[in-house]
Design a protein around this nucleic acid. Structure first.
Length: 716
DNA sequence: ATCTGCGCAATT
DNA sequence: AATTGCGCAGAT
């Protein structure tokens, strides 16, 4: 043997394992050590303290030498399965957590054959068993090409086809264990399930023409194509019977998308921009080798993990493209209703049970997802809608969700599962400010962990509080400018806080953060896209928005690099960029490009069922003439030309004369006095809101002036 | 000088 | 394929 065959590598000293100070004393290596009464023959490091980075590097080396493709998406969602085949979780590392009877090693022996849906086990046990089962199921499915630690015993009689024998899921669901992250691998599947769900749903929408229309249908179509090519290749024999345009089996996404781009109607001319932008981002970033572990080969799997994100981005972008700010709000709601109809009800009726289970688990087992759903609900509240619309929508969504819930529960034969629909309840809760529905244990768990997340994560807390403030402001008919500036402040301060957090928190905390982020990346992505779209349509000077976005880019890049360095976890850059910043940027640019001319809130073209929102009572000018005068002619010109606005954006960025004029216009509008037409909403006269806000008006104006002065924004 | 534990060979 | 044993580099 050559002593210097290879340089001996050193530990990273930054990962969870390296940061652990003491041996666990329980693993096999520890038991062999002399201090623990062993013989000292093994001479191995405590399993809990194995360096993550060393381990990961070794994995990749092996894969490289074997000539196999890189593991598609598992690495981004979880560490290598260090302890996948044993239960050697050091007791010292077992966090007490919020799930007292979580998946302890002992419960592995209970692993049943078929799903004990109708068994007499207590609900909690059932839920746990199901969680284990699903995790294993999810582990086996996507990575079928790779050797996985858990052996697979195929089972043909049950709906669950792959049936591993050795339980390898030992983490508590909501709190990823630093040492035993193998369960994170399941995280990639929710994406698949969701994508499949969306695929089925998209097809449905398209065929039924339910929320018919160009862009939505297109987005659904794209979703369909993307999802077809993906993910549940081991998918059960009941396919979603693809949309009208079934590209033809695997890799359909590739064929579907380009072939549809040229045939788009002219009115959708902005959609290709959004589509190509988003796709390019996802594809390029996803395939750059140095971009973390996202690099993958094979067209079949190329888009799978990102299909949902792409679809969401497309949906928002296209919605915002065709319609302006107000219409976007209504369409947002319509999208929520459609989501309930399709994903919950149709999906619940169509998809095989194990897919339902997977989806359910993905919701229930990840705090961040629930939290982000909460944020999405808040975002809905931010939309400029009339209070009655908010309430009506809330009731409608609740009824729909109840129906879907009944379907799911019937098909799964288990009512406790209904608690998995907690995300929507959080959504509704955020909208109406009601109390969480009682009686659902998992809901309570999710709620508790959500609160814990709030407690431990200042940036998250800040964002939630900010969005809550925005909801209140919107429902209180505050000036759109107030909302806009508050949104800007969120956009600016959120990343800053996160950067500070990345600098001051301990690496262990950061690692936990990365884990939870990876687990809830879909929700994270949703919120980022929604936030980008919301911010993009705010009635602010384009320069301000671009500056804020630029600052966000810098802050995100910095914090990402800091995360990467301090945790030694190379998932971080790709996570943050692919699921955070780039979707934000895509939807932000799309919204920015089209939002200008529609600021006047023209009610003449209101084909949607929801009633038009009231103009803000407290600051009339901001809504009508001010906004009209402020409507950026730059953007208007862009729309007229139907060209990609890069040039215009550059012009604005470089402080051209147009931008400067645009900057001054609000002040000019104020000099010329405020028009009174904004209060003409006689249809709102009968509402208590009218009196309330008429009385509250001056104070709101004063407060938002103060706010604007603080932010050095032009005051209208 | 002593201890730890990486990397690889040997063994099961 | 997984486990065990151990030389020796590097840390203390």
């Amino acid at each position: 043997m050559q002593p210097n065959h290879k340089p001996r590598r050193v530990r990273c000293m930054a990962c969870d394992g390296c940061r652990l100070l003491s041996d666990c004393g329980e693993c096999r290596e520890c038991q062999d050590k002399l201090p623990f009464g062993g013989t000292g023959k093994r001479k191995k490091l405590c399993r809990a303290r194995i360096c993550r980075r060393l381990y990961r590097d070794r994995e990749e080396e092996r894969e490289d030498t074997a000539g196999a493709y890189k593991r598609p998406f598992a690495l981004i969602s979880g560490h290598p399965p260090l302890f996948a085949s044993s239960h050697a979780i050091p007791g010292a590392l077992m966090q007490p957590g919020l799930f007292p009877a979580a998946l302890t090693p002992g419960s592995g022996g209970l692993m049943p054959g078929p799903l004990p849906l109708a068994s007499l086990l207590p609900a909690r046990v059932k839920v746990e068993l199901r969680g284990q089962l699903e995790q294993q199921l999810l582990q086996v499915q996507p990575l079928a090409g790779r050797a996985l630690p858990a052996p697979v015993r195929p089972r043909s009689t049950t709906p669950l086809r792959p049936q591993p024998t050795a339980p390898s899921a030992e983490t508590t669901p909501l709190r990823p264990q630093p040492t035993a992250p193998s369960a994170d691998e399941g995280g990639t599947e929710p994406a698949a399930a969701c994508a499949a769900a969306a695929s089925a749903s998209g097809a449905r929408v398209d065929s039924e023409g339910d929320i018919a229309g160009g862009d939505e249908a297109l987005a659904a179509l794209v979703l369909t194509g993307l999802a077809e090519s993906e993910v549940l290749h081991s998918a059960p024999p009941s396919p979603p019977e693809g949309g009208p345009e079934e590209g033809g089996g695997k890799g359909a996404a590739w064929l579907l998308l380009p072939s549809h781009l040229p045939s788009l109607p002219l009115s959708l001319s902005w959609s290709p921009v959004a589509i190509s932008l988003t796709l390019a981002i996802a594809l390029v970033a996803g395939n750059v080798p140095g971009f973390g572990s996202l690099g993958q080969a094979g067209a079949g799997q190329l888009l799978a993990p990102k299909s949902l994100g792409v679809g969401i981005t497309l949906l928002y972008a296209s919605v915002l493209c065709r319609h302006g700010r107000v219409q976007a709000a209504r369409l947002w709601v319509a999208g929520g209703v459609a989501h309930e109809l399709i994903v919950v009800i149709l999906l619940g009726a169509m998809r095989p049970q194990h897919v339902l289970l997977a989806r359910l688990t993905s919701i229930r087992h990840s705090t961040p997802v629930a939290a982000c759903a909460f944020l999405a609900g808040l975002l809905t509240g931010v939309q400029p809608m009339a209070p009655s619309d908010v309430w009506r929508t809330t009731v409608l969504l609740a009824l729909l969700r109840l129906a879907g819930l009944a379907i799911w529960a019937t098909r799964l034969g288990d009512w406790p599962l209904a608690a998995g629909c907690w995300d929507a309840e959080a959504h509704l809760d955020a909208e109406v400010g009601g109390v969480p529905p009682a009686g659902a244990p998992t809901a309570v768990q999710v709620c508790a962990s959500f609160a814990a997340e709030l407690y431990t994560d200042p940036a998250f807390l800040f964002l939630v509080a900010g969005f809550a403030l925005l909801v209140v402001a919107n429902l209180a008919r505050a000036s759109p400018r107030f909302v806009a500036r508050a949104t800007t402040m969120l956009v600016v301060c959120g990343p800053t806080l996160r950067l500070v957090q990345a600098l001051v928190c301990s690496p262990a905390e950061l690692a936990r953060d990365v884990d939870s982020l990876a687990e809830g990346r879909l929700g994270f992505l949703t919120v980022c896209v929604a936030g980008g779209a919301t911010f993009g349509v705010q009635p602010l000077p384009t320069t301000r928005k671009l500056l804020a976005a630029g600052y966000l880019a810098c802050a995100v890049a910095c914090s990402t690099v800091v995360f990467r360095i301090r945790t030694g976890d190379d998932r971080m850059p790709s996570l943050e960029l692919l699921h955070g910043f780039l979707p934000f940027l895509a939807s932000f640019l799309a919204a920015l490009a089209v939002s200008g001319p529609t600021l006047r809130q023209d009610d003449s073209s209101a084909p949607l069922p929801l009633s038009p929102p009231t103009p803000p009572l407290s600051a009339p000018a901001a809504c009508s003439a001010g906004a009209l005068a402020r409507a950026p002619e730059v953007v208007r010109a862009m729309l007229k030309e139907k060209a990609f606005p890069l040039q215009r954006i550059w012009e604005v960025l470089s402080w051209g004369p147009k931008a400067r004029r645009l900057w001054r216009q609000p002040r000019a509008a104020r000099r010329h006095g405020l028009p009174r037409d904004a209060l003409s909403g006689a249809k709102w006269a009968g509402l208590p809101w009218g009196a309330v806000h008429a009385a509250r008006g001056p104070r709101l104006v004063a407060s938002h002036r103060l706010f604007a002065r603080l932010l050095a924004f032009p005051v209208g």
